[in-house]
Amino acid sequence: MDFYFGLIQIIGVHTLLGLSAYCVLLTGQVSLAQAGFFAIGAYVAGMLTVIAQWPLVPALGVSALVAGATACAVGFPALRVKGLMLVVATVAFGEAVRLFFFNFTYQVQAGNIRLGPHGGEGFRQIRYFPENGWTTLDVMLFIWAVVALVMAGLWWLNRSRAGAVLRAVGEDELAAQSTGINITAVKISAMTVGGVIAGIGGGIFAHYTTHIEHVQFGVVLATFAIAYPILGGLSNVFGTLLAVIFIQGFLIEGLRFMGDWRNLLFGGLIVLAMNVRPRGLLDAGAMLALKRLFFSRKERSDA
């Protein structure tokens, strides 16, 4: 049973990562920097609970703030460019963060072991959950409480005026600008919100894996982050969740019985999915169909 709890934890954390990219993608920007914010969140939260002995929730709060502030600061130079240049700029930022942690060592003596990040060897002994007697189920419930909170927040944002503004910028910058929207402010806000979510996700990630190192936060993780919302469709937050379940639950865990062939199918199925459903698995059309399916009786009674 613990295996499935573990899998559900992974799905939860990756959903947070995907949602952080979702915010930025709504404004039409492709950011491969989310893995960088995720890494910052992971290291900050880990250092706070291990070295400073903070409780988890305030540590996550600080990691969210730090990652959000970084995202905001990166947003200013990076969002001056768009399209391919932005992809490259954010890849470079993500890689720079990863390389920073590759060379970053800050350790304190605790008893007979040294704690803290140690360059290429990574950051071990983030043992907050076992030390405080959290079971796998507790951790899972905690993660999903956070995921539910973030998803509810984004769902509300989506339906509010702010969501309409984000989409307007994403669909057509020129049109949005001519209706008086400050597109730079909108993009940077989206980037900041994305950074905050990635920071929380990273902080949780550090605590359930107990060992983080720089290779975990490379370009591959960044690609996964944008893969979830693009594959799931940008029409609403559940697309991202569906794509995370599809990738982590089905493609990675579900196909394990296929052995070596699983990895081959992984890339192939992503290509196929994009060919068949270029606007994502759960696009606007699919949402409409689902709505008709569930609310058909009500509609008929209205008519």
């Binding site: 992984f266 890339g267 992503i270």
Partner: peptide, 14 residues
């Protein structure tokens, strides 16, 4: 553009 970005990523992994 997002769809082709993703499909080329899939192809990279493939």
């Amino acid at each position: 553009p997002l769809a082709t970005l993703m499909s080329t990523v899939g192809l990279l992994l493939l």
